[in-house]
Simulated assay, not measured.
Amino acid sequence: MRIAIAGAGNVGRAIARELLGNGHQVLLIDKDPKALKLDSVPNAEWLLADACEIAALDQAKLDGCQVLVAATGDDKVNLVASLLGKTEYGVPRVVARVNHPKNEWMFDSSWGIDVSVSTPRIISALVEEAVSIGDVVRLFSFRKGEANLVEITLPDTASCCGKTVGEVELPENAALAAIVRDTHVITPKDHDVFTAGDELLFVASSVAEEKLKSCFI
Results as ranks from 00 to 15, higher is better:
133 I>T: 15
37 K>V: 15
49 A>G: 09
31 K>S: 15
20 L>H: 02
120 P>M: 07
136 V>A: 08
41 V>I: 14
91 V>P: 02
57 L>E: 06
48 L>T: 04
23 G>R: 06
74 D>N: 13
113 I>M: 00
146 E>D: 10
86 K>Q: 05
70 A>N: 02
74 D>L: 08
125 A>Y: 03
75 D>H: 03
145 G>Y: 14
148 N>P: 10
27 L>V: 05
56 A>Q: 07
52 C>D: 02
77 V>T: 10
141 S>I: 05
127 V>E: 11
136 V>C: 06
56 A>R: 04
88 E>P: 01
111 W>E: 03
38 L>D: 08
156 D>R: 15
87 T>R: 15
71 A>V: 01
52 C>L: 06
61 K>E: 13
114 D>Y: 01
70 A>V: 06
156 D>A: 10
131 V>T: 15
112 G>V: 02
86 K>E: 00
140 F>D: 12
68 L>A: 04
51 A>F: 02
47 L>H: 04
65 C>W: 07
127 V>Y: 10
143 R>E: 11
161 C>G: 07
91 V>C: 04
34 K>W: 03
62 L>H: 14
130 A>L: 09
112 G>S: 02
143 R>M: 13
133 I>W: 12
139 L>A: 08
55 A>R: 14
22 N>R: 15
38 L>K: 15
96 A>L: 05
35 A>F: 04
91 V>D: 01
157 T>K: 11
98 V>R: 08
81 A>M: 05
120 P>K: 10
38 L>N: 13
80 V>E: 09
93 R>W: 01
155 P>Q: 05
58 D>Q: 12
41 V>F: 07
72 T>H: 08
129 E>G: 13
85 G>D: 02
144 K>P: 09
146 E>K: 15
70 A>Q: 12
156 D>N: 07
